[in-house]
Design a protein around this nucleic acid. Structure first.
Length: 332
DNA sequence: TAGCCGTGGTT
DNA sequence: TAACCAAGGCT
């Protein structure tokens, strides 16, 4: 009898699974839901290499969801600094508090999906990995593997429906969590976006994309729009070995994070107004949908609501990378 | 639904 | 090196 795709892949996973801090080895009991949830949220659009350090720091400081739920939001935001997509940190706190109120993480995909910060992917991943439920887990890796395996030539994002339907057909009843992680390991190490290693692929014989030509062309994506370059200013205000820091409002860009006072630049418009200070230099920073050229200027009086932050504890302030760069410039 | 939302590694 | 891209979610 011919082996199915899931059988081949699980067999491959049993031999080649990556050892990751949030992962239980194949065939061993599932990790705690808290660790699965935390890692999955951190891993949203973020590389394994970047997540490892933050995962260790968070689980050491907040070993349980109850501990995290009890933490001041600003501590969590500061601990998240540098990881990006800060709405994840805001929702992390909300979610931890909701789960603590409920007494435990829900185990069904549907209930998980209702928690803040959990979309289709993350809810399915937690249900499968932490609770051993059958769930169709589709992330960018799975999209790529499935698009190639079934030679789906329709461009993303339109192809998502077809990809999910095909992923459903190969998801096993048992070991759905291992299967999901196997697909992601395959996608990250072998069925890579560029230069896939088809000669090492356990699914090479089953792959329609390989049979019909060049699998690397799949999945087809819409061309990207050009990123505008925005200009802004930020002020370095130093007194008695302390610097003036503000907290950014709202849920927009870097919302909730500590920052230097700035002139209100956004993705759409350059900054405007403010005092002319002594120019300290330019910081160039790339965001998802625009690039920013930030002029850092020395100023002498506090601006807006804020706090004096001791320079010798600046790395504990939780500045997002843009402002960490600006601080580095000012202190150089 | 398409735009918004970070960052760092890889090629 | 500039471009691409990663275990997406929210609105």
């Amino acid at each position: 009898m011919a082996a199915t795709v899931s059988e081949i892949l699980l067999d491959w996973y049993d031999r080649h699974a990556r050892d990751l801090p949030w992962r239980a080895p194949p065939g061993t009991p599932a990790p705690e839901p808290y660790r699965v949830w935390l890692s999955e949220v951190m891993l949203q659009q973020t590389t394994v290499a970047a997540v490892k350090r933050y995962f260790r720091a968070f689980t050491e400081r907040w070993p349980t969801v109850e501990a995290l739920a009890a933490a001041p939001e600003e501590d969590v935001m500061a601990a998240w600094a540098g990881l990006g997509y800060y709405s994840r940190a805001r929702n992390l706190v909300k979610c931890a508090r909701a789960v603590a109120d409920m007494g435990a993480f829900p185990s069904s995909e549907k209930q998980l999906r209702e928690l803040p910060g959990l979309g289709d992917y993350t809810a399915a991943a937690i249900a499968a990995i932490a609770f051993d439920k059958r769930a169709v887990v589709v992330d960018a890796n799975v999209e790529r593997v499935v698009a190639r395996l079934f030679a789906i030539g329709e461009p993303l994002p339109g192809a998502r429906k077809a990809i999910r339907a095909k992923a459903d057909t190969i998801t096993p009843e048992a070991r759905a969590g291992d299967f999901a992680q196997a697909m992601m390991d395959l996608g990250s190490s072998i069925c890579t976006a560029r230069d896939p290693k088809c000669l090492l692929c356990p699914l090479a014989d089953e792959c329609e994309g390989r049979k019909t030509g060049d699998p690397a062309r799949l999945p087809v994506k819409a061309p990207k729009k050009a990123k505008p370059l925005r200009k802004g200013r930020a002020w370095w205000i130093e007194r008695d070995a302390a610097v003036w820091l503000v907290r950014r409002e709202g849920t927009g860009m870097l919302g909730g994070m500590r920052a230097l006072p700035d002139d209100g630049w956004t993705a759409r418009v350059d900054g405007e107004g403010g005092p002319d200070g002594e120019p300290l230099g330019l910081v160039r920073h790339g965001f998802t949908h625009f690039d920013l050229e930030l002029s850092v200027e020395r100023h002498d009086a506090p601006m807006g609501e804020g706090e004096w932050w001791p320079l010798d504890k600046l790395d504990e302030a939780g500045l997002p990378t843009l402002f960490a760069k600006a601080a580095r410039l000012a202190l150089a």
